[in-house]
Nucleic acid binder design. Sequence first.
DNA 1: CATAGATCCTGTATGC
DNA 2: TGCATACAGGATCTAT
Length: 300
Amino acid sequence: MPELPEVEVVRRGLARWVVGRRITHAEVLHPRAVRRHAAGAGDFVGRLEGTQIAAVSRRGKYLWLPLRSDDVGSIDDALVGHLGMSGQLLLQPQGSPDETHLRVRLAFDTGGRELRFVDQRTFGGLALDALVEDDSGGRIPTSVAHIARDPLDPLFDDDAFARSVRRRSSEIKRVLLDQTVASGIGNIYADEALWRSRLHGGRPADRLSRLVVLALLGHVRDVMNEALEQGGTSFDALYVNVNGESGYFDRSLSAYGQEGLPCPRCGTPIRRIAFMNRSSYFCPVCQRSARHHGAAAQDR
DNA sequence: CATAGATCCTGTATGC
DNA sequence: TGCATACAGGATCTAT
């Protein structure tokens, strides 16, 4: 569930602490946490130790730490991380008790706190990956290059997004969750942006007008920025910043998780339906379903 | 190629 | 109390 705002909160917390530090010790406590590192845990640890963290970057829900290698001095690789559903990156004092689901530990030359990857459900993971040039002269890990820029990226192309969305015959919610169209959007912010747009998630994307798609994008940006200001969304102790603290955007949600509660706009109880093996929350009055928009395709 | 559905994983909440 | 079941859901894999 950590989506873009939650991952950005983590990125900022990490950036303040780890940039410029050298990794002196790496330890993998659960092999599944580094399954995306094809060469295995031993290679992961061996290549990580001795490197210096040059930055903390993010695209969508992916984080990466470009690494300056000890011997060469150049920055060719990055430590790539994805939190999956329950991953946490915590800065903990050395010697503090290991978390139940501690998967990877990194310690630094400066002592003090260590970086811990904790992940209950093990959908997340860490890997080392080569940096390649992206489409605008920047650098990005190979394993992240396949996803689109996210809506908070200054180089995000709104018109290209609208064209991409309107080429698809899938339901608009499914398209919002497709990380190759725009990255960073997950179930919570998809439902919130659709609610703000008064759009039912089941509407076919290719029957929405360009202006409706651009307005939806604006709502995606708004809800993400508002969540960021409040430290992200947390429903329980799983979604926390690097100090283990929860954000409180959950208090501002209009639709997601609000089944049975009144729609803040019209008072109709919010409804929950199954969708893609998860849930969609929407107002059945404000967000009209596809059949009310018939074959006329008036949104063109 | 686009699209849709299954799958991975573990802790918590709920019902009988 | 114990047991079974549903649920949380991002990314990836497989099937059509």
